[in-house]
Design a protein around this nucleic acid. Structure first.
Length: 648
RNA sequence: GCCGAGGUAGCCUAGCUGGUUGGGGCGACAGACUCAUAAUCUGUAGGUCGCGGGUUCAAAUCCCGCCCUCGGCACCA
């Protein structure tokens, strides 16, 4: 028995093509396993807790529960439309999940893996709530640069103990925050060091996930698993607190399994099933480190494989919701009326599962028209309509070579699926269709028909066997379309096993076939391409309006301190006084300037540049310089001016 | 910087536990065919497999160095 899970979508936004890169291959995998006769339980659900949901609900004028319900319904709709069929799709706000989570955490506590510690936390008196780290901003007490939460992320990189940060501000309302002492609870992750090392060396799955996890193994820290929030699963040892989302979310895998099957004890308690997690690479840490430690600590069964999908790019660019490099599944893809199977095929066939996948409308159209339709769909249709017109019923007599070709394809697919190589599996399907086209072409049954009908029937029987095999073998990838075609030759794909591809029926009756697929016309994708292009152009106008220029906050700054960044040739870490504050800036000027000659220098900085991390050190602005043959020369005011003066 | 992934014909991509002429697709060109959604089939052109060294009888494939691109650097879902 196998349990297959997918990373829980966070109920805070709509599904885009990037999400589907995990869910569609998982569904394809499950369908193939079932075709091979495996017993599989397939579950997923909405991840509903956490501060972002509370904050976003407020923004949208909804209660957290309403926001979560809205996206939960959206997820269910989209999965249904794409035929991603979970045995159970749950929700972490449900009581059964809360109960399972509390049970789990109690067990962890009983086993001695939870301890309490008094810490100081920022509290916003205006918002009337304790602030999670990501909603606190202030100044680092060591280097005086702006810092966030528990880390001086722009300056010295030091970890800040609760209460250390100076001038804490609430990021939600901007008001001053205060510190209050409070008891919180920690999960002793450090106790699992040896266990995890051993566990990870045996864990199977895609290399990308395993590699990612291994780099953290020597550097574990205990996790604070409680939060001050009303929204979430109540912490059983202190009902005034709520569990951190990453504690309760993965436990959803257990609670949803309980709802999906009576076998859940066998799976999660007795270790009598393989547990396979499909995830996006971004949550590999939680699934390869945190989650196994929790399971071990609470005496549950351990996952045997973690399958991480690569990233999705849109038109060659990194997916970005704010920049418009995104394709929404419901509002764009489905609304345009495309067959969901096209997207399923694309996601599975574009490249290996753990590599980056580029989604481009042009490539989409080409792949669909050339592969699904011209090669695969056309073979099905040309055979079925040929049979229907000339025979109606065919007595099946199939050549050995044909059967061995089918068997070869079947074996390729079985082997590929076992290794999570979905591209290879779908390539094998296409190859068989192509083989069918060549066979039909070379046999010229349309000519043969004029002289020898009996011989023609033999050719046709061979082709029909290939058709049947294709339907069964591609059913997991394109379930909806294949079911439709299967009706024409009277087979029920739901009852088929993979070995049926080699079974030869006595007779096959063919009804009038319909076109299995509709071609994608250029006009259909033009508007979708344009939508992405336009957003791209907005960001890339070569002419800049005065309004746009005014958005740039250039200011004079005075360099307060400078030091080279260890290990870097060019980078220098500067603290610059820009009047209102002292900023940490990383600049690539170490080859031209020494730290000593920089201190006291006046420079021009772009004060509202989006922060970025360079070599792990955050830079909050940029210093303007002229680049002469690769060497920077700083711009400096011609006379002495006060730091913070605006440059226009 | 550290860790990871990758650099293969105009474009995308397979191969990478070393071994027969580096596969496939798109696009281009030529031809065949008409059962089929101008589909299919056959053929042609196009590659110093990032660069430099090394190991070997033999390297895209193993080792070393370098260059370039992308991603991650965590308790942020």
């Amino acid at each position: 028995m196998k349990l297959v899970t997918c990373g829980l979508p966070y109920a805070n936004g709509k599904l885009h093509v990037g999400h589907l890169r995990t869910y569609v291959p998982a569904d394809v995998y499950v369908r193939y396993l079932r075709l091979m006769g495996e017993k599989v339980v397939f579950i997923c659900g909405s991840d509903c807790h956490g501060t972002p949901i509370v904050v976003n609900a407020e923004k949208e004028g909804l209660k957290p529960q309403e926001l979560v319900d809205k996206y939960h319904e959206h997820f269910k709709r989209v999965f249904k439309a794409l035929n991603v069929e979970f045995d159970f799709f749950g929700k972490t706000t449900e009581s059964y999940h809360h109960e399972r989570t509390r049970e789990f955490v109690k067990k962890l506590a009983e086993n001695g893996y939870i301890y309490k510690k008094e810490i100081e936390l920022a509290y916003c008196e205006n918002c009337n709530m304790f602030l999670p780290d990501r909603y606190v901003e202030g100044i680092c007490p060591y280097c005086k640069t702006p810092a966030r939460g528990d880390e001086c992320d722009q300056g010295c990189g030091r970890h800040l103990e609760p209460g250390e940060i100076l001038e804490p501000k609430c990021k939600i309302c901007g008001n001053k925050a205060v510190f209050r002492k409070q008891m919180h609870y920690f999960f002793k992750l450090t106790a699992f060091q040896d266990f995890l090392e051993e566990y990870l060396s045996n864990l199977s799955g895609t290399e990308n996930a395993l590699n990612y996890a291994r780099q953290w193994i020597g550097n574990l820290k205990d996790w604070c698993i409680t939060r001050n929030l009303d929204w979430g699963v109540r912490f059983p040892l202190d009902e005034s607190l709520v569990l951190y989302v990453w504690v309760d979310a993965p436990i959803g895998y257990i609670s949803f399994t309980e709802k999906a099957t009576d076998d859940w004890r066998k799976i999660w308690l007795e270790g009598k099933a393989e547990i396979i997690h499909f995830i996006g690479l971004d949550i590999a840490y939680h699934h390869c480190i945190f989650w196994p430690a929790m399971l071990k600590g609470a005496n549950y069964a351990l996952p045997s494989a973690v399958i991480a999908s690569g990233m999705v790019k849109i038109e060659g660019k990194n997916l970005s919701k704010s920049r418009g490099y995104v394709v929404w599944v419901e509002d764009e893809y489905l609304k345009a009326g495309f067959n969901p199977d096209y997207l399923r095929y694309y996601l599975v066939n574009y490249t290996s599962h753990d590599k980056d996948l580029n989604f481009s409308w042009d490539v989409f159209r080409e792949k669909v028209n050339n592969e699904i339709i011209a090669t695969f769909g056309n073979f099905l249709f040309r055979i079925l309509s040929f049979v229907w017109k000339n025979f109606g019923v065919v007595s099946m007599e199939v050549d050995r070579e044909i059967l061995s070709k089918i068997e070869e394809t079947k074996n390729k697919i079985v082997n590929a699926i076992k290794k999570w190589e979905f591209k290879s599996a779908s390539d094998a399907v296409m190859e068989l269709a192509s083989f069918g086209n060549v066979y039909f072409q070379n046999s010229k049954p349309w000519e043969l028909l004029k002289s020898d009908k009996a011989k023609t029937m033999k050719v046709v029987a061979n082709c029909l066997q290939i058709v049947k095999a294709l339907l069964i073998l591609s059913y997991p990838i394109m379930p909806k379309s294949m079911e439709k075609v299967a009706g024409t030759i009277g087979i029920n794909l739901g009852n088929c096993s993979i070995d049926d591809v080699l079974k030869v029926d006595e007779k096959i009756e063919v009804k009038k076939p319909d076109l299995p697929f509709k071609k994608i016309e250029n006009e259909e994708i033009e508007p979708l391409k344009k939508a992405i292009q336009e957003k791209f152009c907005e960001k890339n106008e070569s002419e800049v309006s005065i309004e746009e220029f005014r958005k740039m906050d250039f200011r004079v700054g005075k360099i307060v301190s400078a030091q080279k960044i260890e290990g870097s040739k060019k980078l220098m870490k500067l603290v610059v006084d820009i009047g209102s504050e002292k900023r940490q800036i990383v600049a690539g000027i170490a080859e031209s300037y020494s730290p000593e000659e920089l201190i006291g220098k006046l420079v021009v900085v772009l004060a509202n540049l989006k922060p970025a991390k360079l070599m792990g050190v955050e830079s909050r602005s940029m210093i303007l310089a002229v680049d002469v043959e690769g060497k920077p020369i700083l711009l400096t005011p011609e006379r002495e001016v006060k730091p913070g003066e605006k440059v226009k």
